[in-house]
Each structure stands twice: as structure tokens, then as C-alpha cells.
Design a protein around this nucleic acid. Structure first.
Lengths: 336, 336
DNA sequence: TTGAAAGCGCTAACAC
DNA sequence: GTGTTAGCGCTTTCAA
């Protein structure tokens, strides 16, 4: 069933059918109704490919993320997909893993599928070495590229992010103010966002005049879901003679690893060990005591990112970078 | 840059260019190289829409799921997307929520976008009332529909699932054998899979000759992530005079709710209360003690589902229903 | 308000 | 091995 069939059965031209299809005003109400009736009767659906060919768009956005099964990224995808759909866009999901070559080929594939825009979810798409960001800049020459929780200063690339530096600074200060002066920054990634968190931590320790040997950092290189391995790393670190009574964790998974560490060492939370996580994801209520965490307003970020993209696609002016503030949600793992 | 431009610059016809593009053998190595060089030189990429129009496919699969931010569903999507991509298919993600009307319109949208197949992730797409499954049967008239963890007996609909009845039966028997004869089945959905779990529980209690008043069931109607609300429901239930020393939870979230309940009531796990969850997701190691859970082999299911779909699209015969066995992974919340 | 017709960029059948 | 050409189903001028 094509537009030709409908036009024939309705006794009009295909142009008229097309007009009805696209809600043009230049059709008499009478013919319009007639055409609509025929369409209904024969269960006609326009061919999306033909449409795409003519209009050069199928209203789809490519979403890339390293690992859609990560709680935080999954939530982001969920929010973004919902908003895109409300705006009449579908999304093609592409999980790239953490390897640059795969990211590049995924990007090219999306471009070749002629998506209208690309959203990079998570900060691990941006590299220190600008050469390695070339794939993004190249993509941005074709379609707008939106970054969630990352920054890249390039034409047609837009960033929406949470002010991780400020919120980590604040969290560190709060912990210090609660009487803890040997704090460990526990992290697992060297991404832009990861570095900003570390900077916030370092700045806070410095501003509170804490000697460098009391501002420790520990890097976890295992799987982001492997809570037992995180606990084990902390135990080993502790056993090696490093002392700390507070942990600022770069995400909630790591914070749970810290809780597990405390449990296994027989430490009481928050008296022997205070913990603050990042992301404020549902994990915070899975543990005991419940986790104090930094809410980085993911839903807000996603909504802003999506509406920016819509603006861009509609030719409106849009700021290249938008930053939101996080907020510490205090629960049982901190003293206050 | 179109196939015409390339053909002109290479001094061949568009047919030859098309042949090179599609790896046909009927092109001399020499012209092939020439054409490839020109393509490379001008950075030519074929237009996916025109291609789709001609071939009537763009190699995309629609994935529908109620809530992609659910840990378990997110994991499933991750596995499925990975396999589809390995087979050269993209996927369009559609999060439908739990409302039938939205599911129907999402389904229609995917069909109108001309996906090559549709995958329904999770058992909440199937309804008791067969009239409400009509949207699936209609869709299956257009493209193959794959069900993960659900069953619908209809043409062109294929099911891949875990034997929840058997594994819940086994878990219940194991708990009974460990000395607990008042067990609560704690659940939150009336889906096909949910009902099978309940049936397994009931059958096990019956086969062990446990009086009906000791085989309790409790339904949680809140958000699937709201652990505190689950704990609260259990506390209220307990306070109302219901006793139980074991809980079979229909998923790991609910099991965490049970752990929280135990913590708040000062019950020791597993001595005062044993708990078995379902899904064996990463939450099992987030709590203390770690959670005994039924591994329903999600990755295996997803891989099977995807390869079945590929077979179907390639015209191979495929079984309409495949069931895998689950396995109890014992950890700290059970006695044994 | 309507219709005719020229694309959009590709595939595939057919001819040479 | 290669070229010609007729679609694929729609949008969009341009005329009427």
C-alpha cells in the first residue's frame, strides 16, 4: 500500500495524498477527509525509508555510552530516551566499551546511518590527548554532538555537566568539619569528571591546611561492579599501614566497596570511618547504614541536554557549555 | 557525494560502483581498485536511506522494555545490543513504561520505522487477557517478535526464558531442608514470570506438606527501587503478627528490602531470617551478608534470543520456545 | 485547491 | 565485466 494506491482509490493525485499526510493546509476539508478515510480503510502506513530519503532525516539520535549496564549510565540513557521520544525522535543505542577504536567505529556507523545528532553519555569519550578526540570533532562536522558530564571545546559540540569539582570540594570540607582530617580519595577513572573530583578533593585538603600525607588517594582498576575487589583493595591498603578515617568515593559503587571494607575490618560507620559517595544512585539505600552521596542532578542534566539538542536541530542559539551544581545528600555514613 | 559522482570520476557506470560497494565478484580487480580509490579520496559514504528504500531494510532491531534503568533489564539490553551489533544490526531502544497504551503506540512506531524485528525485554509485555496481547500478534504479522522471559503462543513470536518455576521450587525446597518451615514469598509483579515463581514456591511448600498458613505470600506494589518501602512493608507485616523465618524474594531488590527489614528489626541473617533472591545481579554483593540468589543465566538467554532472531531473519528454522535452567548461588543469607 | 513531474541515491534485472 | 534503466515511495516545486 503506497501513496499511489491511496491516490488512485481516492481519485486524487499523490501530491494531495502527501499533503494530507503532512497536514498541509492547502487541501479542502472534503478531499482531506476522503483521503484519510481511504488510508484508514486500507491501513496505510507511509514508508519511512522513502520519507527519509526525501527529507534526509529519519528523526533518530545516536546515543553512545561505554556500558549501558552501569547503573548511572543506564539511568542517563533512560532519561534521555524518554525526552527524545517526547520530541518525536527515536534513539539508536550503541554501547562502545572503553576502547577508542571501537568508539570511533561506532561513531562512524551512527553517522553513516544518518542520525540527526549524537549524544555521548559519560566522560570517558574525551581523551587527554587532543588527537584522540578527533573522532568527535569529525563527527561534529556532520551532526551536533552532545556531551553528558564531559567537556570538549569544539564547533558543534555541546557540553552539559555537573560541577564535580565544587561538590567534591564541598563534601571534603564537610567531612573535615565533622572532625576527620585523614581522608582518602577513592577513585577508579582518569576521565575529565574523575580529574575534576580529584581536584576538588585536593583543593579542599589544601585549603584546610591538611598535610599532604593525610590527603591520600587510592586508585581502583578493577571492574566497576566488583564491590568485593574494592573492599579487598582497601583492606590491603590499610594493612600496608595507611590510615584514614574518611573516604570520598568517586562513585557509589566505590562507596559500597568502602562500606564492605569497614564491615570486614569491624569498623563502625560513621564513627571509625565516614563515607561519601557520588551519584546518589539507588545503591545508597541498599547498604547499611545508608550512604551519604552527592546528587549530581542527573535527570536535570539529561533534560537540559536533550532540550538543547532539540533547540540546535531547530536552528536556535544554544550555549556551548552548561554546568549545574551538585548537592550532598546526608545519610548514615557521615557524622554531621 | 553520491554514487553518480563516484561513477563519473572513476569513469565507470553507477552499476559498477554499486557492485564495488556491495562486494560483488563481477568486477575486475583493476576497476574495483580504481573505484575504491576514488571513494576513499572523496570520502564517499553511501546514503543509508536510499539503500533502505531499495532493500527495504536498514538492519535495525527494535528493543522494547518497560524501564531500561532497572538493573536487570539494563543488563539484558546491554547483552542483546552487543550481540546484535556483532551481527551488523543496530538497535532502536524504546522504553515504554508499564502502561499498555504506551506499549501499543511504541510498538506501532517501531513497525512504522520499519525495523527488521522486535525484542520485548521482560515479562510485563504479556497480559493475562489475550485481547491485550493483540498488539504483539499484530506486530508479529509484520516482523518476528522475540520475547525474553515471557511466553506467547502465536505465529512469528518466539520465547526465550528461564525456568523460574523449577528454580523457585528448588530454592524453596533448599530453604525448607535447611530447617525453615515458615517461608514468605515476597513479590512485586503478576507477570508470567512472577506467576511461575509463585507456582514454584506453592508447589514446593505443598510437596513438603507445609500447612497453608505457613506458606505466606506478600505483595509489594511500590517502586521497584524503593528498598526502604519494601523493608517497611515487611516490618508492618511482621508487626501484624505474621511470622516467617525465611523469605523467597522474586528479585534481588526485594531481597535487599528483606535484608534491610532484618537489620531494622535486629534479626540476624541467616539464623533468624534466611533470604534467597532472584536474578543474581550485582546487588548481591552490595549488602552484608552477601545475598544468596538464583542465577537465571541472563547472558545465555540474551545470546540465545539474539542468535535465534538472526536465524529467523536468515530464513532458518527456529524453535518457538526455549527454556534454560536457573541455578542457586549460595552466599551469606542462607544457612547450608 | 489540485495535479504533473522531477528528483532523492541506491539496487537489481537485463542487455551487451 | 560492464553499462542502461526501471523502479523503490515519498517530497516538493511549478503550473494550472
Amino acid at each position: 500500500m503506497t501513496i499511489y494506491d491511496i491516490s488512485e482509490k481516492a481519485g486524487v493525485s499523490i501530491a494531495t495524498v502527501s499533503r494530507v499526510l503532512n497536514g498541509s493546509n492547502n487541501v479542502s476539508e472534503k478531499t482531506k477527509q476522503k483521503v484519510l478515510r481511504i488510508m484508514e480503510e486500507y491501513g496505510y502506513t507511509p514508508n519511512a525509508f522513502a520519507r527519509g530519503l526525501g527529507l534526509n532525516t529519519m528523526k533518530t539520535i545516536g546515543i553512545m555510552c561505554a556500558d549501558s549496564s552501569d547503573l548511572y549510565l543506564a539511568k542517563a540513557i533512560y532519561f534521555i530516551e524518554r525526552e527524545l521520544r517526547l520530541n518525536g525522535y527515536d534513539c539508536i543505542l550503541s554501547c562502545t566499551g572503553y576502547d577508542l577504536a571501537t568508539k570511533i567505529s561506532s561513531m562512524n556507523l551512527l553517522i553513516s546511518k544518518k542520525v540527526d545528532g549524537i549524544i555521548l553519555v559519560g566522560s570517558n569519550f574525551i581523551y587527554e590527548d587532543m588527537d584522540e578526540n578527533k573522532y568527535i570533532i569529525d563527527a561534529a562536522a556532520q551532526v551536533p554532538v552532545m556531551l553528558l558530564n564531559a567537556v570538549l571545546d569544539a564547533p558543534n559540540v555541546y557540553s552539559t555537566l555537573s560541577d564535580d569539582l565544587a561538590s567534591t570540594y564541598e563534601a571534603t570540607c564537610q567531612m573535615y568539619a565533622s572532625g576527620i582530617d585523614d581522608i582518602l580519595f577513592f577513585y577508579n577513572s582518569h576521565t575529565y569528571s574523575g580529574k575534576r573530583k580529584m581536584s576538588g578533593f585536593s583543593a579542599a585538603m589544601k585549603d584546610n591546611n591538611i598535610p599532604a600525607d593525610r590527603a591520600r588517594t587510592l586508585y581502583f582498576s578493577g571492574s566497576h561492579e566488583d564491590i568485593p575487589a574494592m573492599a579487598k583493595l582497601l583492606i590491603d591498603y590499610h594493612m600496608a599501614g595507611n590510615t584514614f578515617h574518611g573516604i570520598i568515593a568517586a562513585d557509589d559503587y566505590l562507596a559500597l566497596g568502602a562500606i564492605k571494607y569497614a564491615k570486614e575490618m569491624g569498623l563502625s560507620i560513621p564513627d571509625d570511618l565516614a563515607i561519601i559517595g557520588h551519584n546518589n544512585c539507588m545503591l545508597v539505600s541498599c547498604c547499611h547504614p545508608e550512604l551519604t552521596s552527592i546528587d549530581n542532578k542527573l535527570e536535570l542534566l539529561c533534560n537540559h541536554l536533550t532540550s538543547s539538542l532539540m533547540d540546535i536541530l531547530n536552528g536556535k542559539e544554544t550555549p556551548e557549555k552548561t554546568m549545574f551544581s551538585g548537592e550532598i545528600i546526608n545519610r548514615g555514613t557521615t557524622r554531621n
